[in-house]
Nucleic acid binder design. Structure first.
Lengths: 198, 198
DNA sequence: TATTATAGTGAACATAAGTTCACTTGTAAA
DNA sequence: TTTACAAGTGAACTTATGTTCACTATAATA
């Protein structure tokens, strides 16, 4: 049955068009908009197409009968550990999915991403050009990695509470601990590190 | 004018309710749904509230007159480098915003997240319990970090092309390079590393 | 006190949404 | 060829959406 394979490819392609619309417009297209996307002149053709995509499990209708993706179009599947390896094609469907945004960020309003410029935290696995995600609203605690302004300069260091005040410690023997003289402004706590290859 | 301050807090709270709805339902609430959220019995009260939020710049209407957030509710602001430090409150508004999902993931369908179990890549800044993001569709190239199944076991290593075949090299002197005997299955290429503190 | 603006109500409206129906076209199988 | 069915058209229908209008209640201001 080459026919149905061809059919499913067509459907899959239309699903991709819907997804693309969603990613650029951040909302579902209406049936009229889908008609444009698919090159249809009738909404009913869209209606039938969407129903097929629902039957195939790509899309669903929520409790208010609004069209949704069955799995968030930007979420990725989560595998327990490297050692466990990759599941079979059939098992893939069973995996939990995660959105990195939701996984990493609690308070978008107070959260920033900064690019790392030096090598002062390499021993903590933070390499030059990595990105760190910083929450300004979070209370800095002992041993947290913080972004601090000390004596006029901005740095990223471990924050250590000691008997005689705060200490900023690098994760690199090249750099000596800093004991703030005049002022210590802690702008935020590093809650996450992100590295992107290539 | 305590009055208007109080007013803006109320509005801000209602904006938060909309955002919360969006984050849980992955779509904008309708005006009737907002009426429920706000405790109104008239859609017109919602209409006026939404218009105020539009005036204040929290929401916008797109070219098709559909309600949208002016900035993606999960995106975070991007700062050039740690050294540059944090901008002032006024300057914050001018920063670019990024969605981590969009920033890190190109092909959600072929992308997986795995938790790192060993210390074989520490010198590359990949620590135990970090997460790696792996694209199965990407062609593995020389010096890429790959997830490979070699002689029955799954590992993460640098992939090296040599004259006499492939070599899997750890980023840790403790581990010797592996030369696959029988089989080498490369399941995917590590495109990103993510670490979450606490 | 009287006045004026603001927040919310409730009904009515036009529009666009998703859906249904009857029909045509093209293609695969008998 | 003939048959059967899936794919798409086009119009009609229902419902829900955002919007407008006239009105009430509340609270700040003169």
């Amino acid at each position: 049955m080459r026919r149905t394979e061809h059919l499913e490819e067509k459907l899959k392609h239309r699903f991709e068009l819907i997804r693309h619309f969603y990613l650029t417009n951040k909302r579902m297209p209406s049936y009229s908009e889908m008609a444009e996307l698919f090159g249809f002149s009738s909404k009913n053709a869209v209606f039938k197409t969407v129903n097929k995509l629902i039957d195939l499990g790509f899309l669903i209708k929520d409790e208010k009968k609004r069209l949704q993706f069955s799995s968030d179009p930007l979420s990725i599947r989560l595998i327990g550990s490297v050692k466990a390896g990759f599941p079979s094609f059939a098992e893939e469907e069973l995996l939990d999915t995660v959105s990195l945004d939701r996984f990493l960020i609690d308070n978008p309003d107070s959260t920033f991403m900064l690019q790392v410029s030096g090598d002062s935290m390499v021993d903590a696995g933070i390499m030059p050009n990595d990105y760190v995600i910083v929450d300004r609203a979070k209370k800095p605690k002992n041993n947290d990695i913080v972004i601090a302004q000390v004596d006029g300069e901005w740095t990223m260091k471990y924050l250590k509470h000691t008997k005689d005040g705060y200490l900023l410690v690098a994760a690199n023997d090249k750099y000596k601990p800093i004991k703030p003289k005049s002022e210590l402004v802690i702008a935020g706590v590093v809650i996450s590190v992100v590295r992107k290859y290539r």
